[in-house]
Design a protein around this nucleic acid. Structure first.
Lengths: 244, 244
DNA sequence: TCGCCCAACCTGTCATGTCAAGTTGGATTG
DNA sequence: CAATCCAACTTGACATGACAGGTTGGGCGA
């Protein structure tokens, strides 16, 4: 069921109302929430609907519940601005036509050792490369190389020199019923190669962030590799998480 | 309702059976689970009971479900290669005496702009710095600078030139009842400064990964900043996560 | 005044049933 | 061969109802 955002679903309406009351101090820490029966009456919904809203509040750490006793607001409200970063997923999902991508090349060439290793291809073998530059108003900001085993791209639009109008991941699913399950990222700092420096209009040897991401299916097989080169002076990766 | 352990509740019986089948390979990664209707028939329970068991499997990351499509076993879970990285937490928790740390300096000095900005101190003000180098058998691998507002370290062992025998976070809680709630990380690539190059025994200007981490309390206040400089040719940050 | 009992409340679990919306694959048509 | 349609499947959401077990506080008796 495709739900509208926010309050589309009844349990979300209850959830958001309770969240707001906790956040604004209407329900201060330690206070018992209205009982499930009271919430049923107040929101004119069924008890399982209220139970689902309360379960999500517990999951968010905002309240705690105890059979026979009630639900209570917890002492500390987690910082709402915590957001983990998924730069690899962003690369795997990039839709070229929705970005500033300028395609540099698309074709089958002998892949570097790192690519064949990570894609579990024989050393020295060829792979399919789709390479482009992303830019902003100040110039090139990212050089992206997407690598695939050759058999994976036959019958897809990836072989075309036209910009992709949808994300690669979505395209691979639509044409080949291939599903990526997880991503593995590797981040390192090194000097730009001459070719990279040229493509990114930066001094040769300048430091770059290099993100190498592999997209894997549920069996662990690497289906796709994306290599992003980011000028060091124009990029900073951000991440945030609760401490345990 | 106080439930017996394990299989006392009906949804737990379903949950544990499905967990076992996933763990022993009966349901390998990528395989679609029996539908909810099929599980209802197999376990002779109601559909909401099956739904609860599946919800818990999703919460554990073992399966993924999609309306209209089915529930599927996820790739290699739990696996070491599917583990999110917390390099900032590692830095905030570093116990010097349990690592290869060689303390370079500990004292109050005028802090760089970036430090005062992130610690919300007046520009040009002093802060407490504790700086050391980590090494392996091949030489220095990491230069770590831990910065604190001065009032935060008074009355702690941080002011001592002796190695800390416990993590800084634990120490701050023990002495000052200060609790770090979350971390924010910033990762960038740049060239090593002359000082850093010297401390890390690397060529001046060589590329480095620079991790800047702030530890915040529950109110969002930055209590501590750790700046780690990692030679680019000796470090690669790893991360992995399910794709959504 | 204290201890016990019990009613009244609470949350958790489970069932049956219905409706909504998404996905898939086969059939059909152009 | 590609596009469209639709039946049959799937999961998600919501309702009503019932029962189990925990907690609490008031009333009563010793």
């Amino acid at each position: 069921m495709a739900a509208p955002r926010g309050d589309g679903l009844k349990y979300e309406r209850v959830l958001n109302a309770l969240r707001s009351r906790i956040a604004d101090g209407t329900y201060p820490p330690g206070m018992m929430l209205p009982s499930q029966s009271q919430l049923v009456a107040e929101f004119d919904v069924s008890r399982p609907t209220v139970i689902e809203a309360l379960r999500l509040l517990r999951q968010e750490g905002l309240i705690e519940s105890q059979t026979g006793r009630g639900s209570f607001v917890r002492g500390k409200v987690p910082a709402l601005n915590l957001e983990r970063a998924y730069p690899g997923q962003r690369l795997l999902d990039l839709a070229e036509s929705e970005s500033s991508a300028e395609l540099l090349q698309a074709g089958i060439i002998v892949a570097p050792v790192r690519v064949t290793t990570l894609l579990e291809l024989p050393a020295g073998s060829k792979a399919f490369l789709r390479q482009y530059v992303l830019s902003d108003e100040d110039g090139p900001i990212e050089l992206v190389s997407a690598w695939f085993p050759i058999d994976l791209v036959t019958g897809t639009k990836l072989t075309s020199p036209e910009p992709m109008d949808e994300g690669i991941r979505r395209h691979l699913y639509g044409r080949k019923r291939l599903r990526l399950d997880y991503a593995m990222e590797r981040t390192l700092a090194r000097s730009a190669t001459a070719e990279e420096a040229h493509a990114l209009k930066m001094p040769a040897g300048a430091p770059v962030l290099n993100l190498v991401v592999t997209g894997h299916d549920a069996d662990g097989k690497a289906l796709q590799l994306v290599d992003a080169v980011l000028p060091g002076d124009r990029h900073e990766l951000r991440d945030a998480y609760p401490l345990t």
